[in-house]
Lab assay of single mutants.
Amino acid sequence: MLEGKVKWFNSEKGFGFIEVEGQDDVFVHFSAIQGEGFKTLEEGQAVSAEIVEGNRGPQAANVTKEA
């Protein structure tokens, strides 16, 4: 698991990027966000996630919002 913060997230398109210190930004799709209801993230929000290899490079999986 790694910790980072949301760089930006487009709720209409359902994707965005997470900033991780010392690494390239990581793509995040709404389907990777854990929880019930409408899955979205806010800019600057702290999150933790796993990194997996997607079709277009590294992407976030099992994204959870930090308190």
Rank of each mutant, 00 (worst) to 15 (best):
V52Y: 10
F30H: 07
E66I: 15
G4H: 02
D24N: 12
V63N: 02
R56E: 06
Q23Y: 15
E66Q: 15
T64L: 12
P58N: 08
R56M: 09
A46T: 12
F17Y: 07
G35V: 09
V28Q: 02
Q34H: 09
L41D: 02
G22C: 08
V26N: 00
T64K: 14
A61D: 06
M1N: 09
H29G: 03
T40A: 07
M1V: 13
M1R: 15
E36C: 14
A67V: 12
Q34G: 08
F27D: 01
E53Y: 15
E50C: 14
D24G: 13
S48M: 14
H29N: 02
Q45C: 09
S48L: 14
V52C: 13
K5G: 01
F38S: 05
K65C: 10
F30W: 15
F27Q: 01
V52T: 09
V47K: 02
V47G: 03
E42T: 13
N62L: 11
V63W: 02
G14D: 00
F30V: 06
A32M: 07
K65E: 05
E43S: 14
V20N: 03
K65V: 14
S48F: 14
E43G: 12
N55M: 13
E50Y: 14
G14W: 04
G44Y: 04
V28M: 05
E50D: 10
F27S: 01
N10K: 07
Q59A: 08
A32E: 07
E42W: 13
V47W: 02
E66L: 15
E3P: 13
F38M: 06
Q45V: 09
V20T: 05
G57C: 07
G35T: 09
G57N: 04
L2A: 09
G37I: 05
F38V: 06
F30K: 06
N55A: 14
L41V: 03
E43Q: 15
M1H: 12
Q23T: 09
G14Y: 03
E50K: 12
E19M: 13
D24C: 14
K13G: 04
G4D: 00
A60Q: 01
K7F: 05
E3I: 15
K5E: 02
G35H: 07
I33T: 04
F15V: 06
Q59C: 09
I33P: 04
E66S: 14
Q45Y: 06
E21I: 11
I18W: 02
D24V: 12
N62E: 05
K65F: 12
V26A: 04
T64N: 11
I33Q: 03
E19G: 09
V52A: 08
Q34C: 14
G4C: 08
A61T: 10
F15C: 05
G22E: 05
G57T: 03
N10H: 09
V47H: 03
V20L: 10
L41N: 01
S48H: 13
D25M: 08
E50F: 13
V28N: 02
F17W: 09
D24Q: 13
Q59P: 04
F30D: 01
I33G: 04
V47N: 01
Q45F: 06
H29E: 04
Q45P: 00
V47S: 02
Q59R: 10
E43I: 15
A60P: 01
E19S: 14
N62I: 10
G54I: 04
V52L: 08
H29W: 08
A67W: 12
G54H: 07
E43R: 15
G35Q: 09
V20D: 01
F15I: 08
A67G: 12
E19D: 06
T64G: 06
V52W: 09
K65M: 10
P58L: 12
F17K: 04
G57Q: 04
G35W: 09
K39P: 05
S31L: 08
D24A: 14
R56D: 06
A61Y: 10
V47E: 00
N55V: 14
I33H: 02
G44Q: 04
S31Y: 07
N62F: 13
D25L: 10
A60K: 02
E43N: 12
E12P: 07
A61M: 12
N55E: 12
V20Q: 04
A61V: 13
V6M: 03
T40L: 07
K65A: 10
D24H: 11
V47Y: 03
E19A: 14
K39M: 07
A67E: 11
F38C: 10
A61I: 14
E36S: 13
N62G: 06
E36Q: 11
S31V: 04
F38W: 13
E21V: 12
G44W: 05
V20E: 02
W8L: 00
I18A: 02
F27E: 01
D24S: 12
E36F: 12
G35L: 07
N55Q: 13
V26Q: 01
V20M: 09
M1T: 12
Q34K: 11
T64S: 10
G37R: 03
